[in-house]
Simulated scan of single mutants.
Amino acid sequence: MTADDLKTQFRQQSQAALSLNTAYIGVVSGLFSTLHSLGTAPSTALAEAAKLDPGYVLRWCDAAYAFGYLDVDGEAFRLTPMGEAMRPEAPDTLMPMAVQSVLSAHMAERAAGLMRTGERPGEQVLAERETVLPWFGPMLEANFAPMFERTICPAVPAFADVDARGGLAVDLGCGNGWYLRALARRCGKLRGLGIDGFQENITQAQALAAQDGLGERLRFIHGDIHALALDEPADLIAMNRALHHVWEKDTATLFAWLRANLKPGGYVVIWEPAWPAERTALREPSRKALAFQNLSEHVQGNHFLRPDEIQAAFAQAGMPSQVHLFAQGNEAVVVAQR
């Protein structure tokens, strides 16, 4: 590859990043959704409907037009199919890609500044950009709820067993509550308790559960799982992409707590990105993003785990476990039963 070829390649990559940055502004400002409801509108009418500054909206419309999210007839803008797909409400929405692009840039900047000191500030870095945190839960939901409902839940026998028994399902690190909402829709006898360290997530989770008519079955509380006492033993304890956030603190104590807070025959279901056993696997296209995400996890005081590490922790706690792999082996669901 020549120098000119490399420049062309990186210009294309740079333009892709700028496109996602433009989309992010439209997502978090509600511009895609508002223009969808209007059908067509000049930028001034769009700004008025979205309750935004008309100068910023005009410049955004120009950028969104340049990157193919909008078409225009005279001064009236309308969404293209790509713009429609970026709406958070759209089926199989592309919104997570826009949110992840800005979150990744933020984490890259933080990692670059911490390289010399070795400081690992923790999960509060997610809250350093005021427009990002409210979209973190919706981003995870859009990315992973369809996989859970369509693929994981039918393939993991523990869910059918819990559905038949009913009882209490606890989600540690529940985010905006998407997992418990999905589980409650499938398992009509279950009650749910979600715990998260960000009050923003708990507020979202409560509102969304009420919106779905699940407010009486699902409860969400702000708290630290290291200082948590359940009112009753659980039939299912879940951790979805949350175990690596607490792994480096006291793994043995956590897994002992998980076992102690289960009913006999109850399940712990851990869903984690599957860190590969061999570094060479990171060159695979489906795993390249995982490598960068692990760097950003280091900023937060975490690191991704191999499935066998999770199994070893269950074994130490006296619980046999089984690994289920999904998404080309990139997602691991580890199930243990008391």
Results as ranks from 00 to 15, higher is better:
residue 112 A to I: 12
residue 194 G to P: 06
residue 63 A to N: 09
residue 247 W to K: 04
residue 86 M to W: 11
residue 158 A to W: 13
residue 268 V to W: 06
residue 296 S to R: 10
residue 253 T to E: 12
residue 17 A to N: 10
residue 179 Y to H: 14
residue 240 N to Q: 15
residue 320 P to S: 14
residue 95 M to P: 04
residue 105 A to M: 14
residue 244 H to V: 12
residue 41 A to K: 03
residue 334 V to E: 09
residue 267 Y to T: 12
residue 16 A to V: 10
residue 321 S to F: 05
residue 265 G to D: 05
residue 304 F to N: 01
residue 259 R to V: 01
residue 53 D to S: 09
residue 335 V to Y: 07
residue 60 W to L: 06
residue 323 V to A: 07
residue 215 G to L: 05
residue 246 V to K: 01
residue 12 Q to D: 12
residue 257 W to C: 04
residue 313 A to C: 03
residue 297 E to H: 14
residue 306 R to E: 13
residue 268 V to T: 12
residue 329 G to Y: 10
residue 6 L to W: 15
residue 31 L to I: 02
residue 18 L to A: 15
residue 173 G to M: 06
residue 234 A to V: 11
residue 103 L to A: 09
residue 165 R to F: 05
residue 208 L to Y: 11
residue 147 M to I: 12
residue 75 E to H: 09
residue 140 L to T: 15
residue 53 D to F: 00
residue 210 A to F: 02
residue 44 T to V: 03
residue 31 L to Q: 00
residue 68 G to P: 01
residue 72 V to P: 00
residue 273 P to R: 07
residue 169 A to E: 05
residue 316 Q to G: 13
residue 313 A to H: 05
residue 33 S to P: 00
residue 307 P to L: 01
residue 218 L to D: 08
residue 105 A to T: 09
residue 284 E to L: 11
residue 73 D to W: 04
residue 172 L to H: 03
residue 318 G to D: 07
residue 125 V to C: 10
residue 132 V to E: 15
residue 21 N to S: 15
residue 227 A to D: 13
residue 178 W to K: 05
residue 163 D to A: 15
residue 188 G to A: 14
residue 95 M to H: 00
residue 287 R to H: 03
residue 190 L to P: 01
residue 114 L to S: 09
residue 196 D to A: 02
residue 149 E to R: 11
residue 335 V to G: 01
residue 172 L to F: 10
residue 137 G to N: 08
residue 317 A to Q: 06
residue 133 L to H: 07
residue 75 E to D: 12
residue 1 M to T: 05
residue 261 N to P: 11
residue 248 E to W: 05
residue 263 K to E: 13
residue 90 A to G: 08
residue 149 E to T: 12
residue 212 D to V: 04
residue 254 L to H: 08
residue 38 L to D: 08
residue 234 A to K: 08
residue 192 G to R: 01
residue 273 P to I: 08
residue 221 I to Y: 04
residue 315 A to C: 04
residue 294 N to W: 08
residue 19 S to M: 14
residue 200 E to D: 11
residue 293 Q to K: 06
residue 64 A to I: 00
residue 142 A to W: 07
residue 116 R to T: 13
residue 164 A to D: 14
residue 303 H to C: 11
residue 331 E to W: 02
residue 321 S to K: 04
residue 135 W to A: 02
